[in-house]
Amino acid sequence: MSDNGVKRSINIFRPLQGTMRGEVQVIALLLAACLLAVVGTQVGIWVLEESIDGFWLTELVFFNLPIHFWISGQFLPLLFIVLGLVFNLWMDRHELRRMEGTIRFRATGRKKGEVP
């Protein structure tokens, strides 16, 4: 129960104030990117397969590999690593801010003449 009498709860669709709200926004963004990348690339590959008897899948070569092998076998795992990196950097930054905020609060919250 919060101070205003409203019962509080955890719900990813209604994040509470604090870092949780920002965290949920970042999570939603990263998961959307992940979903779009996986489904979007496969739909794209399917379209290429369906068009001109898979001509483009034979002709398009990237980093020595047919385009669909490169996208699914190399690029997507790399993208997942980058998404993880972005999430961790964001989380580190916010943890640092929160810690700084706590230190500032402690510093300003000290009474006059109080020995730290």
Binding site: W46, E49, V61
Partner: peptide
């Protein structure tokens, strides 16, 4: 070698007529 094996795919296509260009031939999207 994670990229080098692409040449094997090309060799399979050009010398043996073996293509990897139908990713969803045996399984639906």
């Amino acid at each position: 070698p994670q990229f080098g094996y692409g040449e094997a795919i090309t060799t399979l296509q050009e010398q043996f007529g073996f293509f990897w260009s139908e990713p969803f031939a045996s399984i639906s999207l």
